[in-house]
Amino acid sequence: MAKLNYNHLYYFWQVCKSGSVVRAAEVLNLTPQTVTGQLKALEERLRGNLFKRQGRGLVPSELGQLVFRYADRMFTLSQEMLDIVNYRKEASLLFDVGVADALSKTLVSRVLETAVVSGEPVHLRCFESTHELLLEQLSQHKLDMILSDCPVGSSLQEGLFSVKLGECAVSFWCCAPPSLMPFPECLRHHKLLIPGRRSMLGRKVLNWLQSQDLAVDILGEFDDAALMKAFGVANQAIFVAPTLYGQEHFSREGIVELGSIDSVMEEYHVIFAERMIQHPAVQRICNSDFSQLFTG
C-alpha cells in the first residue's frame, strides 16, 4: 500500500481551516489549481470524496470530517513541538509577547522586566494589537503569551489560561484645566477622550459616565493609550490614564489630575496556552508579586 503524502494532507487541513480553496491557497502561497490538484490526489489515495457541495461552497464529507479530526491533532501537535524546539534562537530564549494596545506601556514594560534575568539571555519580541486579534494569534501558535486588560474564559478558549497580575485605578487628566468646577461636573464642559469601547476599560468608563448621568462630549476613542495621551495634550482635551502612572510622570509635563474613579479599575492579565506553562519567562511573570507596582 502506498504511503500517505503528508503535504496533501496538510493542504486538505488548511482548506478545512480556511473555509475555501482560494483562502487556503493564499495561506499556502500556491495557486487554487495546485491546491485542487493535491486534494484530488489525496481523495484518490483515500478512495473517497473529502468534500461535498453545500450551496455555492464546499463542506467536508463524512470521510472528510474523519480525516480532518486526525489531521488537526497531528498538525496541532507538530506545531506545539516546533514551539518548544524553537524556544531558543541562537543563544537566547525566544519569547514572543502580544500586548493589548489599550494598556499603559510603562506598566507593561515593568511587567516584562521580570522575564529578563541575568545569566539567562532572553530574545524578547513584542507585538501590539487588539485583544481579539492577539487571542487569534495566540491560538495559531504565533505568540507565546499575551498581556491584556481582560481574562479569557477557559470554556470559550479551550487550552488557554489567564492569570490576573493586578489592577489600578484610573483618573481623568488634562494639560489645561477646563474650569474650576468640581469633578466630575467639569467633564461636561470639555472635550473628552476615552479608551476604545472594544477594550474592557473603555466599556467600564462608558458605564461609569452613564451611572453618573454625565452628558459629555466625547471627541474620540483610542485603542492606543499613548496616542490618546498625546492627542489629548495637543488638543487640550481630557483623557483617561492610570492614576499611579499619571501621578509619577504627568506633573513634569504640566498635565494635572482632574479626578480619579476608584470604582473603575484597569486590569492586567497574562494569557498563555497550556503548552507554555513550562516556559521560564512565563513562569517568572506568573510567579512574580506585582502588588507594589499596581498599588504604588
Rank of each mutant, 00 (worst) to 15 (best):
V170H: 12
S171Y: 12
S171V: 08
S171T: 10
W173P: 14
A176P: 11
A176N: 15
P177S: 09
P178R: 12
L180N: 15
L180T: 07
M181R: 14
P182G: 04
E185R: 14
C186Q: 03
L187K: 09
R188V: 10
H189T: 00
H189N: 05
H189L: 02
H189W: 06
H190S: 15
H190R: 14
K191H: 12
L192Y: 00
L192P: 00
L192R: 03
P195G: 02
G196S: 14
R197V: 02
S199D: 00
M200I: 04
M200V: 04
M200L: 08
L201N: 04
L201Y: 06
G202T: 02
G202Q: 01
G202S: 01
K204G: 02
V205T: 01
V205I: 11
L206M: 05
L206T: 07
N207D: 10
N207V: 05
L209S: 07
Q210Y: 11
Q210R: 15
Q212F: 04
D213Y: 14
D213Q: 15
A215S: 13
V216W: 05
D217K: 09
D217H: 13
D217Q: 15
I218Y: 09
L219S: 07
G220A: 14
G220C: 06
E221K: 05
E221I: 00
F222I: 03
F222K: 08
